[in-house]
Design a protein around this nucleic acid. Structure first.
Lengths: 206, 206
DNA sequence: GTCTATACTACGATAGAC
DNA sequence: GTCTATCGTAGTATAGAC
């Protein structure tokens, strides 16, 4: 990136070093400006941090919007429609987790997951809530045997299968035995994810 | 914790604030000593960071050792034995992810996953490698239809279902609709995890 | 709006008393 | 081994020039 915006530089630095570890000087320098312009535009280091969270939520929402729209047409209220919609949505999540752009977002979000601050409200309210409620809704159609709470718990652990592609990236590469995830390995992981999701979604009540 | 050791305080502070954000003064103060004792015992801030990684790996290995031992007896070389061993092992992982002690470890490890340093070598070599290879071995017995690489990819995404209980904790609580995960919610999540694993492990080649 | 200059605090490392 | 004292550096925030 030739010249990132202040927000992009902030996400990068906050993600790598945390709120305290990141320095406004370094963020400003990376964005090609000076520290005091951060004060001018965002009020303070804390204001910049919250703006960074909003920016991430907005970018994720934008990135997932076309797929969500498409899957809403696939989901016709039937069980098979819901299964197809969920497979499409989780594959879209997986592609996001695998793309390079999500790396700085993930660093930022994972910190907030472990130690939630006001910024987590921005992330959850900005994009996570709508996405998870949509998954739960389709999951209840796909698995009518599950109670509301069981469906919510299932949605979470299903999402975990996708999230690990980013959150556990270093271990993923080690276990597969590659330096970086190329297209071939990405296809392998997506295929396994899809297969697992199908096994879970098609399961009949016993 | 009345008076944490320097290592415990270091894991806490490094996990919360990152390597740069954490201060040796604050770590020393939390451990009830002074900054220069860190220099004396660990050489430098960096030396303390590596020692913290070793400590985490050792504690995880100790915590999982009894279950691994028990499951090695359960795994008798048969498919059903391997399935039972995997269910037991992943449930043990889940209990670790749910217990309070793993919170500071997770904060530390997740940073290293996103931005691996020398400390990740300590974590991976210290405990992750043995655990993941054991999972892959049993998975190949449970799912003989999978190739080596498919089994490795499956092991990863299966582990993701467990890891999200810690790595995505804030979102887990929101989606379930609770403030903290009590015993009842923990049981719900473990049951869903087990059910999903069974669906994946019992799937026959199509 | 964007810069320089500066006030004040906190950092890691080290030296040396005991 | 553990402490205090101190050095040089870097942090945020603010004031004010332009």
């Amino acid at each position: 990136m030739a010249m990132p915006s202040i927000l992009e530089a902030a996400i990068e630095q906050f993600g790598r070093s945390g709120f305290e570890g990141a320095s406004t000087r370094a963020i400003a320098a990376a964005a090609g400006t000076t520290m005091s312009s951060i004060t001018y535009h965002f009020g303070s280091k804390h204001g910049l941090y919250l703006a960074a969270a909003d920016h991430i939520a907005q970018r994720i929402a934008e990135m997932q919007a076309p797929t969500v729209e498409r899957m809403r047409n696939v989901a016709d209220g039937s069980r098979e429609g819901a299964i197809a919609a969920l497979l499409g949505l989780f594959d879209s999540f997986a592609l996001m987790m695998l793309c390079a752009e999500s790396a700085p977002w993930a660093r930022f979000i994972l910190r907030e997951q472990q130690e939630p601050t006001e910024a987590f409200e921005r992330l959850y309210g900005g994009v996570m809530h709508r996405m998870s409620e949509q998954v739960v809704e389709w999951l209840r159609l796909a698995r009518p045997d599950l109670s509301e709470r069981e469906a919510r718990a299932t949605a979470i652990v299903m999402f975990g299968q996708t999230m690990i592609l980013r959150a556990g990236r270093a271990t993923v590469c080690r276990v597969i035995g590659v330096e970086t995830i190329d297209d071939e390995v990405a296809a392998l992981l997506r295929a396994r994810l899809r297969s697992n999701l199908l096994a879970i979604l098609r399961e009949e009540p016993t």
